[in-house]
Design a protein around this nucleic acid. Structure first.
Length: 729
DNA sequence: ATTTTCGAGATTTTT
DNA sequence: TCTCGAAAAT
């Protein structure tokens, strides 16, 4: 007994009063609003340890949900540090991997095989490409994004689960009004064929299962006595419903989040769930009306950032209208002012950054004290070039996830094909990599033959590879190689099998000849990680188990301790902190992004501002905001981001000379965006009103903040602050 | 007639 | 960096 209380005593020593309240409030519904840098993760991990040590709860009865892999890995790491390396953290997971786990156990009830494949973006795109091809439509990135959105909307209604899970479903009974509908139906049919589930399905199937199989629901409800959700501001309404249902039996749900850090609205996250938590708990959509009460705990003392950084962050986020007012504060005063660099060119911008880092390292500091953050991925190229030139070591975080890299997907597809020769999706991926002279035409003929004879593509090729059609191609070599590999597979470990695959299929040679050392390194890294897993799992690591959930993981091991500058998008930086942060590329159209400006929706702009807030609050000691003149992607000359003007000028130390004309624009912008009532339309603009329909702006009255807009039924005065207007193009 | 290669052009953010 | 379309190579 004394050991236990001794341990908990240790735990409490590191926490402040509100944190202790959060840790010990184990029963019932609890909402914690935790500002940036207030020890959110620390509180969560300590609470987890408290449940284990003090209440004696088993880890298999505690579900701890996050929304990104990085957050999940960080939680696991910290729990293992506290409770031991051997500790079982399999219920500390992203919502998607939790759902996958449930589905692996239960999905056969929906007549779907339990070895289903999880489809990532690339797989989805491949399927869509096939559909487009069949229908003779062309596909570009815009239409891909559009269709993915359409699919998401379509899948919002769970009825599709019924026919996707029914092997004998007659798709001709579905009405298709538009081309989009047709594409969606075909997409779903193909999913069924490949036994694939995309990220939407993981959530939707689980919900469907819980809704329709009450025994399954009860089993999981009983099992999960305590549920915790991190980054709760990023939850969608639908995901919330699932969590709420899961909590109905034990009624212990603990949620932590910060509305100011909601940066996933574009993905469907609804921050109203955290803002009006109690109301959502008792939403009329739930069959079980439980009259739930929620307890509130607020963490607002910041332990991360120096005062000037916090002041800048507060000053920026205040400009958002749609928020719960909350101020971050610290007891520690002092620290350097936030620096705003206005450079003459992007070269100067990166040069300045390099010189600061170099000076720091020369005086005995480390590269790893620095991070460079930016709005979108392509900016990394410009940072990387600068660092390469200046000999500064760096690591790019996130970017293309490890398991999304081409060479890794290729190798995994080979492994899948060896595991299951009927996996057509994998077959298509690797059949012509390396080149085997099997292109579009031969593949089409093969597909037709396969369909006629009800064979998988591999089996079809196996019987056709000696015919005239495949003469001159390496089809025979391919079939032989895969069959040899299948014969040996049983007696080999996964890592040995992978090495054989690389040799027999000629893939290793192909990569070597392409001369891309990085790609080869990535494959070596994959091999290394398999060997690590084999040591951990021993004989139990079969090919099938290895392949099952790999889609959901991203490289967590990039967190190496080597001394490098970290560069990443702001989205990936969420939840991390660094001594010194450069926030680069603060240019209108880049950040805030062109799209958020185009839409002229305040919501999108506010999300961008929250994103900027997240970036700023990553910094502990020193923050640099940088931006440069020159020409942007579309040839327009670049102007500084409005966010720079959102921050009180007195809080910034300006480096460089900002030209007068830009300053003038600056003042107009800051005045415009100082208040909710912003002018976003001008005379002649075509707009759409939520109630009145389409119209044309006749007059803009700055004084009364009113647009006069001509609609079908006459001219109406509409206030600037009205949110229901949008542009018509 | 097919497949491959090569150069031009475009990029939000994640599970 | 990655994707797509046109010309070159088989």
């Amino acid at each position: 007994m004394s050991t236990i209380s001794g341990t908990s005593h240790e735990i409490f020593k590191e926490l402040n009063e509100s944190q202790i309240n959060a840790v010990t409030a184990t029963e019932g519904y609890i909402r914690v609003i935790a500002g940036a840098g207030t020890g959110k993760t620390k509180t969560l991990t300590h609470r987890y340890a408290y449940l284990i040590n003090e209440l004696g709860i088993s880890p298999s009865n505690i579900l701890c949900i996050t929304f990104t892999n990085k957050a999940a890995n960080e939680m696991k790491r910290r729990i293992k540090t506290m409770l031991g390396e051997e500790f079982d953290t399999s219920f500390v997971a992203t919502l998607h991997s939790f759902c996958t786990r449930v589905l692996r156990e239960e999905i056969t009830k929906l007549f779907y095989p339990d070895n289903f494949i999880v489809l990532d973006n690339i797989d989805q795109k491949k399927i869509l490409e096939e559909v487009y091809d069949e229908m003779g439509i062309k596909m570009d990135t815009a239409s891909f994004k559009f269709m993915i959105d359409q699919i998401r909307y379509y899948k919002n209604l769970l009825t599709y689960v019924e026919y996707l899970s029914n092997p004998n479903f007659d798709y001709t009974t579905l009405k298709t009004k538009t081309q989009s509908d047709e594409i969606i139906i075909r997409y779903i049919k193909k999913q069924r064929k490949y036994f694939g589930l995309d990220f939407f399905d993981l959530i939707n199937f689980t919900i469907y299962l819980f809704n329709n199989y009450l025994d399954v629901l009860l089993k999981w409800q009983k099992k999960l006595c305590y549920i915790m959700v991190d980054e709760f501001q990023d939850i969608t309404a639908k995901e919330f419903k699932m969590i709420r249902r899961l909590s109905e039996y034990n009624r212990n749900l603990f949620v932590v989040g910060d509305p100011d850090q909601n940066i996933y609205e574009w993905r469907g996250a609804n921050m109203d769930v955290i803002v009006n938590f109690e109301k959502w708990l008792n939403n009329e959509c739930f069959e079980n009306q439980l009259e739930l009460k929620a307890q509130d705990i607020i963490l607002s003392r910041n332990y991360r950032s120096r005062e000037p950084i916090l002041l800048a962050a507060n000053s920026l986020i205040e400009k958002n209208c749609n928020r719960v007012v909350k101020h971050l504060h610290t007891d520690v005063s002092g620290g350097d002012k936030v620096i705003y660099l206005h450079a003459k060119s992007d070269k100067d911008e990166i040069k300045y950054i390099c010189s600061k880092i170099k000076a720091h390292v020369d005086s005995g500091g480390k590269y790893s004290d620095y991070a460079v953050l930016y709005r979108s991925g392509y900016v990394s190229r410009f940072v990387e070039q600068g660092f390469l030139g200046a000999d500064i070591p760096y690591v790019v975080y996130g970017g293309v996830g490890f398991y999304e890299r081409m060479e890794i997907k290729d190798v995994l597809s080979y492994m899948r094909l060896v595991d299951n020769i009927d996996d057509d999706l994998s077959f298509k991926r690797v059949i012509n990599v390396p080149r085997r002279k099997i292109g579009k035409v031969k593949l089409k003929a093969l597909t037709e033959y396969a369909e006629q004879n009800d064979l998988s593509l591999f089996r079809a090729l196996s019987s056709l590879c000696d015919t005239a059609l495949f003469k001159g191609s390496k089809a025979k070599d391919f079939v032989d190689a895969i069959e040899r590999l299948r014969e040996t597979a049983e007696n080999l470990s996964v890592s040995e099998l992978l090495q054989n695959i690389l040799l027999e299929t000629g893939y290793e040679l192909y990569i070597r000849e392409s001369g891309d050392i990085d790609r080869l390194d990535n494959i070596t890294e994959l091999l290394r990680s398999i060997v690590t897993q084999e040591i951990e799992f021993g004989e139990n690591l079969t090919l099938s188990t290895f392949l099952q959930d790999i889609t959901l993981f991203k490289d967590s091991d990039t967190e190496d301790k080597s001394d490098c500058v970290r560069i990443m998008t702001i989205h990936t930086s969420k939840g991390l902190e660094f001594d010194n942060v450069f926030l680069v590329g603060l240019t209108e159209g880049v950040f805030p992004s062109a799209r958020s400006l185009e839409e002229r929706q305040n919501d999108a702009l506010e999300e961008e501002r929250r994103l900027c807030f997240v970036a700023i609050t990553r910094a502990r000691k020193k923050l640099y905001l940088t931006e440069s003149e020159g020409f942007g992607v579309k040839g327009f000359s670049k102007t500084p981001s409005r966010f720079l003007f959102d921050i009180d000028e007195n809080l910034l130390e300006i480096v460089g000379v900002i030209p007068e004309e830009i300053k003038a624009e600056y003042i107009i912008l800051s005045r415009m965006f100082d208040k909710t009532d912003t002018v976003v339309y001008s005379v002649g603009d075509q707009i759409r009103h939520k109630a009145f329909g389409e119209g044309i702006v006749e007059e803009v009255d700055e004084k009364t903040k009113t647009y006069y807009i001509r609609f079908v039924n006459g001219i109406k005065p509409i206030s600037f602050s009205y949110k229901g207007l949008s542009h018509v193009f």
